[in-house]
Design a binder for these strands. Structure first.
Length: 564
DNA sequence: TTACAGACTTGGAAGAATCTTC
DNA sequence: GAAGATTCTTCCAAGTCTGTAA
């Protein structure tokens, strides 16, 4: 095992002893529009002040995005925009419908076209400039190691794009200045210089946290951080730890399950609710579901925050008994829709929890995430609701790989099995994506390829037949060699056809499933690495370069016998 | 018990880079 | 070698969960 992953013990809560960096890279200041690109109000050109113009460009850039058709987006934008206008502008610009951003929009579209059309040399030059910034600001020194930073740039100003029905969509996200930024580094390190003429908000030396810089964003008034890249030792060790907690759950999960099943009959309503909620979290991999401040964000829920309106009870449905129909918006306003047959006791309890309640009432009115997590912590050190997601995801991958992999398969066939196992997890965790815009087209292309290959296979078969006939007649060595040649050719064609068919299956099954999140965040990479080793699949077929860097710890330590 | 701040992980979309195909 | 498709990377929003204070 590489020593990089062997932890030298630090005091409780201490994350590093040395941290040195350059501070964040600040995105360039606004460049005014050329004079011939105009904004029009009520049909007439209107020269805007610099600040007003900048905000106008934020909206103009988004003109062909669906966001700008939404009333909330428009209203929020217009309100915030007006606040930044000069009083003269405020007197003129009173109606968004009379604002014409089309020329500005076109200017940016053209600009991006022009960028794409640059020559190879010009593009190379741009790349070198970006690399230089990355080299200078993109790394830090942490305990003697040079580590990559995840997000070393401050976020540019723009319009807030919340997801789902977000009440704040379209609001102005302000430009981050050095005066907003708190720097965190070690006392004896070279303290980063703020940009010329500016000061940091604060410089602190807190070695109990992992961030290098932070600021408060103005939309939700929450903190944003600059942190390390997943490839760093600090993040890698944390990731490893996460999976070790999940593996400890594996040892006690049977006991926990037995207990929550028993608690379905508890005299205490609070306990019953906790037990049913935990059953959902375990069986369906639901998220914990913290309470959220009403009206500040989109209306989404998790397990503990489910409301009566989010489930329907069916004593019988489609030949199954005790079916619960879930329909709610979860994280990122992704819809969770599922019909699940549950134990009779769970069903009865749900009926009880819903009795005399309005649709908008909490299903688990005696429960919240901190009650649940406190309970879980008492069952196992380090246990919280999300550990069940990690555990169930990883164990599912391991089981599915075991069930689906055929050692006789080609690498392509094994990869299909892997993807299917990965997919089972993504479905469990409800990781969805919108169907790619090019899906139908590329599916068709693939089918065309398959048809062509089929044709080739048939021709290959005929040619082989012909060669065999000829050998039959002549019995000479040349004809025999030809038969072998044709056999080989046919075999290759058949393999190519099989591979294409596999690809098509994989693609179709993957239409609306996003595999990335589970691969990156829920599946213990050691399971994958062990599988690769066991079945002779190169790791690069599963993990790309970035992923291999992130999972370096696992690649170092897992052998083919690893069991989650 | 609740409210809240803070720190950290998880999430899909969009943009950029690279590969494939004609 | 351009266009289109695919894959990788970046972006930043939206969760989880802990600790603290009242």
């Amino acid at each position: 095992m590489c020593s990089r992953w062997e932890e030298e013990k630090k005091e409780d809560g201490v994350k590093w002893t040395q941290l040195e960096h350059r501070g964040p890279y600040f995105v360039p200041l606004y460049e005014p529009l050329p004079d011939d690109v105009q904004f029009y109000y009520d049909g007439k050109p209107l020269k805007l002040s610099l600040a007003t113009e900048e905000i106008a460009t934020f909206y103009a850039k988004m003109l062909d995005h669906e966001y700008t058709t939404k009333e909330i987006f428009q209203n929020n934008f217009f309100n915030d925009w007006r606040k930044e206008m000069t009083s003269k502008e405020q007197k003129i610009i009173k109606d968004l419908d009379k604002c014409d951003f089309r020329e500005i929009h076109k200017y940016f579209v053209d600009k991006s076209e022009a960028r794409k059309a640059l020559s190879k040399e010009e593009k190379q030059k741009l790349k070198e400039e970006a690399d230089k910034i990355q080299e200078e600001y993109g790394y830090c020194i942490l305990d003697g190691h040079r580590e990559k930073i995840g997000n070393f740039k401050t976020e540019p100003p723009g319009l807030f794009r919340g997801r789902g029905d977000h009440p704040k969509m379209g609001m102005l996200k302000k430009r981050i200045m050095p005066e907003d930024v708190v720097i965190n580094c070690s006392k004896d390190s070279k303290i980063p210089e703020p940009p010329e003429g500016h000061k940091w908000k604060e410089v602190r030396f807190d070695n109990t946290v992992t961030w290098l810089a932070s600021w408060t964003e103005n939309i939700q008034n929450t903190l944003k951080y600059i942190m390390l890249n997943p490839s760093s030792k600090l993040k890698g060790e944390k990731d490893w730890q996460k999976y070790e907690v999940a593996r400890r759950l594996k040892d006690v999960v049977h006991k926990i399950r037995a207990q929550y099943r028993a608690d379905w009959k508890s005299k205490e309503m609070k306990k019953r609710q906790r037990a049913v909620a935990l059953y959902f979290i375990d069986k369906l991999a639901l998220r914990a579901g913290n309470e959220k401040e009403e009206g500040e964000t989109a209306d989404t829920v998790g397990c503990c925050s489910l409301r009566v309106e989010h489930i329907k009870l069916h004593p019988r449905l489609d030949g199954q008994e005790h079916v619960v129909e879930f329909d709610f918006l979860g994280k990122d306003s992704i819809r969770y829709y599922n019909k699940v047959s549950v134990e009779k006791l769970v069903f009865k309890n749900l009926q009880l929890f819903m009795k005399n309640k309005d649709p908008a009432d909490d299903l688990f009115d005696r429960l919240n995430t901190s009650i649940l997590n406190r309970h879980l912590q008492s069952l196992m050190d380090g246990l919280s609701a999300k550990v069940f997601r990690t555990y169930n995801a990883s164990i599912t991958l391991q089981e599915q790989l075991k069930a689906l992999t055929n050692s006789e398969d080609s690498v392509a066939g094994k990869l299909l099995s892997y993807n299917r196992a990965n997919r089972a997890v993504a479905i469990l965790c409800n990781h969805q994506r919108s169907t790619p815009k090019t899906f139908e087209k590329s599916m068709q292309n693939l089918q065309t390829k398959i048809d062509a290959k089929k044709q080739q296979v048939e021709e290959g078969q005929q040619e082989l037949k012909k060669a065999e006939d000829e050998f039959e007649d002549t019995k000479d060595a040349k004809a025999e060699a030809n038969v072998e040649k044709k056999k080989k050719l046919l075999k290759r064609l058949e393999e190519q056809l099989a591979k294409l068919n596999v690809q098509a299956t994989d693609k179709e099954e993957n239409k609306q499933i996003a595999l990335g999140t589970s691969k990156l965040n829920y599946l213990d990479p050691r399971i994958t690495i062990a599988w690769c080793k066991k079945f002779g699949v190169p790791i690069e077929k599963i993990y790309n370069k970035t992923q291999r860097e992130k999972f370096a710890w696992a690649i170092d330590m897992a052998d083919e016998d690893f069991e989650f």
